[in-house]
């Protein structure tokens, strides 16, 4: 198979785009795709301070690599979740990656933030571990981005992630989530950095191919608590459609974005500051503070981000 652009030997066939590409042209294709996503959806501009949330997996490390190559002044942020063994190996992969690039990296330890690892918290709080983990990570990332005055928080969500989330939200008709699912979530509140997903138009296979071709050593280990996640079956379903009808995933997502306005975003109108930590919530107390309260058994004094006082 020949590269459609230069005629050299192709290394990958992209059926959704009806092209096969050689190594160099595929790497350029990926960079262009991400740059287009950033511009089309106004994720951020070159002057903005962007922090990339890095788990150590292929998506987040690939995202950092791409943004750096595109010339954005990015920094990395990793949360050590305190899951025995797994978290250590993830953190090591991140540290090696950033050391090689001499790029700025910030690490927060869940044990230092809240006094316990994810498993210990989950054992005390009545909530599924994955949901708990997602909630706590989002909170810590948002808070970090605010404390360090980053204007955008970029995550490695790819097209498969976005498609699976969209399918899940449609299956349950979660109108609020449908209204807010996008490659960029604007900073609707002073203490909140905007969220950006620059890989939203790249499939998981394209991201993996980029990672392999760049020899990025990522943490390729599944979280021990992630078995049976619904998102995986949604991804499988979409990839089956993609197999029979190439381009289905990208059409599904992009057409949704075009028509997203039909879903009313009522949740954004009810937002207020958490009575304990001051962060954005639609309740009296945010879920993060509620969880900490459940875990410790007493109200948790949360330090003020601006003054640093406890």
């Amino acid at each position: 198979m020949k590269c459609k652009k230069c005629g050299n030997k192709a290394v990958i066939k992209l059926r959704a785009h009806r092209i096969a590409l050689c190594r160099e042209d595929f790497l350029s294709f990926v960079l262009n795709r991400v740059q287009q996503t950033i511009k089309r959806y106004k994720l951020f501009v070159a002057k903005e301070r962007v922090v990339v949330a890095v788990s150590g997996g292929k998506d987040s490390l690939t995202l950092f690599d791409i943004l750096q190559r595109l010339g954005y002044p990015v920094e990395g942020f990793h949360i050590d979740l305190g899951i025995d063994g797994f978290s250590n190996r993830a953190r090591e992969a991140v540290e090696v990656f950033f050391a090689k690039r001499e790029a700025p990296l910030h690490i927060r330890f869940l044990r230092e933030e809240v006094g316990a690892g994810m498993r210990e918290i989950a054992s005390q709080v009545r909530r599924p571990l994955c949901s708990l983990c997602g909630l706590m990570r989002r909170y810590i990332m948002n808070r970090f981005a605010w404390e360090k005055r980053f204007s955008a928080l970029a995550t490695g969500h790819n097209l498969d992630d976005e498609g699976a989330a969209l399918l899940g939200n449609l299956m349950r008709w979660q109108i609020g989530y449908l209204a807010r699912q996008a490659p960029v979530l604007p900073a609707i509140y002073p203490r909140l950095a905007k969220k950006a997903k620059p890989l939203a138009l790249l499939s998981e296979r394209e991201v993996l191919a980029y990672c392999i071709l760049r020899a990025i050593e990522y943490h390729d280990e599944q979280c021990p608590y992630a078995k049976g996640a619904t998102s995986r079956s949604n991804k499988e379903a979409l990839n089956l459609l993609e197999y029979y009808s190439p381009g289905s995933k990208i059409r599904f997502y992009q057409e949704f974005l075009k028509h997203q306005g039909i879903f009313p975003d009522s949740a954004s109108h009810d937002l207020r500051e958490c009575s304990m930590c001051g962060f954005l919530t639609n309740r009296e107390t945010c879920q993060f503070c509620e969880i900490l309260e459940q875990y410790t058994g007493s109200p948790v004094p949360v330090r003020d981000s601006e003054t640093g006082k406890g």
């Binding site: 990958i12 296979r205 191919a209 392999i212 499988e236 990839n239 089956l240 993609e242």
Partner: peptide, 9 residues
């Protein structure tokens, strides 16, 4: 194996 979910090296 769905080719959309795999790469060969």
């Amino acid at each position: 194996i769905n080719p959309e979910t795999a790469l060969a090296l």
